[in-house]
Nucleic acid binder design. Structure first.
Lengths: 215, 215
DNA sequence: ATGCTCCTATTGTTGAACAATATATATCAT
DNA sequence: ATGATATATATTGTTCAACAATAGGAGCAT
């Protein structure tokens, strides 16, 4: 079936999903023995897994203390949105008519609207992230996409800490469609300003929700 | 002395230097037994090291085949400069008067001129990289800096493949000073256009040298 | 050459062991 | 009690030896 990847990578992928889904709580310590037993692998292999996930910022590694599920704080969120601003601004600047990523953005924007009307906000969140990933692919840069994937994964982790994901995604369904429109018209300045507005709004919403949660 | 880091991290740092210095040739295969013996560590620990360096793109990991020293090709160089363009453009946009990173840029620009007049081009290259790292720190974003450090390390690897590093760095001593000047005057557009010119010129020089080398 | 089997070196993974470090517990002086 | 100190315990850091799984090459037939 699915076994062209090494065991370490396979387990890394599984843990990654668990972390992002919030099954492993942020800040929680991961004991080597315990986790190794749970996944039926040896400690040595698990350590490779941990190194993998640490490099993706999903786990935090403190020497001689162990690994912990990353717990992004306000500073992290601010930094994440700074990265998004820089990279995604670069993306809209690089946008060209007829780029496959643009078509994908259009598709995802429509899917988001559909799923949103059905009220499945978790799904909307996922689609929204895919939308922005597609946007970065406008750069045709595997390294920028990789960097962006990292911060996006961190952001999903933050979302996992919050509950009221409803209004965290709802307002952006319209914005996405509008952004696609601007890009298809090759109106870069409009797209850039809409992106900037989106990011600012989203950052504020996330920060507010995060601070509400910490009380 | 210096032992607050784990053995794996220490060895990773050493190998990293060797790779960047070109002591391990790009594309060369690294045998686990051999390298483990050379550094006096066990295979298991070395595997952690490899995972670390792979995530930094200094090594390439092919399942069931082993790890190889990364060998950036033309496509990689093009991509690296795309990343630089996006991130560093973001940096000059974020520049503010009196930012500590700006002072550091000025210092490094002067050092570059000094060392350059003495003809120590290798040193000029190092200082030049520090200069651009400082530029990215204008963003005050640890994640952007981390991403930038990755591509810069890759770029050093490319430089290692070339010999005539002299004229690869010489023309940029003046450009750096001029860029600092523009930023200190808060003339963002000027700085941006100079940066763009610099990156384009540098990219072309590197690509040309690289293609000359492959024959 | 092309395709085949067999062999071998290397990677992938394991389990147990021990040293080094951190955390928890108990002990003691104040 | 409180706080400091020592002791014990759990966990991480690292090693080693073993074996399974895989890739690459040698030889051989076609």
């Amino acid at each position: 079936m699915t076994d062209d990847q090494s065991l370490a990578e396979a387990v890394a992928a599984r843990i990654r999903e668990l972390v992002i889904a919030g099954e492993f709580a942020p800040g929680q310590k991961l004991l080597e023995q315990q986790v190794a037993a749970r996944f039926g692998i040896s400690r040595n292999t698990l350590r490779e897994v941990f190194r993998l996930l640490t490099s993706q910022r999903l786990l935090q590694y403190i020497p001689n203390r162990g690994v912990f599920v990353a717990a992004p704080d306000e500073a992290a969120v601010i930094d994440i949105y700074r990265v998004r601003s820089v990279i995604q601004t670069g993306a809209v600047q690089a946008a060209t008519r007829g780029h496959p990523a643009l078509a994908r953005m259009r598709l995802l924007a429509e899917q988001g609207r559909e799923v949103g009307s059905r009220g499945d906000w978790r799904q909307v969140g996922t689609i929204n992230m895919e939308f922005h990933r597609a946007m970065v692919e406008l750069c045709d840069s595997p390294r920028l996409s990789a960097c962006f994937d990292l911060v996006l994964a961190e952001l999903r982790l933050v979302f996992g800490e919050l509950e009221d994901t409803a209004h965290l995604h709802e307002p952006y369904i319209g914005l996405n469609a509008s952004l696609v429109h601007a890009l298809e018209e090759a109106d870069i300045p409009a797209a850039a300003s809409q992106l900037e507005a989106y990011l600012l709004k989203s950052e504020r919403a996330v920060l507010a929700a995060l601070q509400r949660r910490r009380s």
